[in-house]
Structure formats: structure tokens, C-alpha cells
Amino acid sequence: MPETFEPYVVGFLCNWCGYAGADLAGTSRIQYPPNLRAIRLMCSGRVDPTFILTALKRGADGVLVVGCHPGDCHYINGNLRTERRIVFLKKMLSDLGLDYRRVRLEWISAGEGEKFATVVKEFVEEIRELGPNPIEGNANET
């Protein structure tokens, strides 16, 4: 692992909780590492596993999906749909030989700015220990 490895993390944040929680971390000026590239979606249930696979294929070192706490979903249960998909996806990643810890699903409410910052911090640290995405390099050509 090169000493200068900085994890590059792609995040899918739902509009109502994850994204709003990230905004609250901002208004509260809670600092966290600048390793996350966030994409806003209306619901975490919009996250097609293809999105996560595309991100990994293109070299993301980690993918963070953030939805509302169970029961709080703006769309009743979209977050639970994504939870089910990610459980399967993680198993599939392990079968493919990729560490399942590179994909993380978190529930963060619009009021949990502090938690958002902590989650990003911890996830970036975890990815730092896992090292760079091993499928990087040959993937960008395909």
C-alpha cells in the first residue's frame, strides 16, 4: 500500500435524511475528512445495485449508501428495499473476491449531523486500512 493512499468514496444520499444530515453537519461546522463524493437521490431505495457495481468497477475505494432510519423513510419503506439489496450485493462481492466492507449502508436522520460526520470518518478509516480498490486500473478501459 502506498503511503499516500487517500480513499476515494462515492456516497448515495437520500434527499430527506442522508443529504439533510450531511447539510446539518455543514451548518454545525462538524469537520470530517474530504474523501466523500456525494450523489443525491430522492430515496435510498433508488440505489440500483448496478450503481454500486459501476462505482466499484470505475475505481471507487468504497461506496456509502445513506438512508432514513427504518420507520422514518419518506417513502414508507424504500430504505428497507435497499437494505435487502445490499445484503445480497455484499454476499456477491465476497463471492467475487472483493471485501464486502467496501460497501456500507447507514441510517442517518436529518437531525444527525454529528453521526454523518462520524460515519464518514470511520468509513474512510476502514477503507484506508483495506487499501486501494484492487480492481482499479483495468476497469477504466472497459
Binding site: Y8, R37, I39, R46, T50, R58, G59, A60
Partner: peptide, 16 residues
């Protein structure tokens, strides 16, 4: 929030 829109965001994020 179409597939094309989101996929191009992902690809753009990773085409550093």
C-alpha cells in the same frame, strides 16, 4: 433521477 443521469454522475466522479 434517471439511470443515465446517475450513471454519468458516478462515472464523472471517478474520472479524475
Amino acid at each position: 433521477f434517471t439511470n443515465e443521469q446517475i450513471i454519468s454522475q458516478i462515472e464523472s466522479a471517478l474520472s479524475r
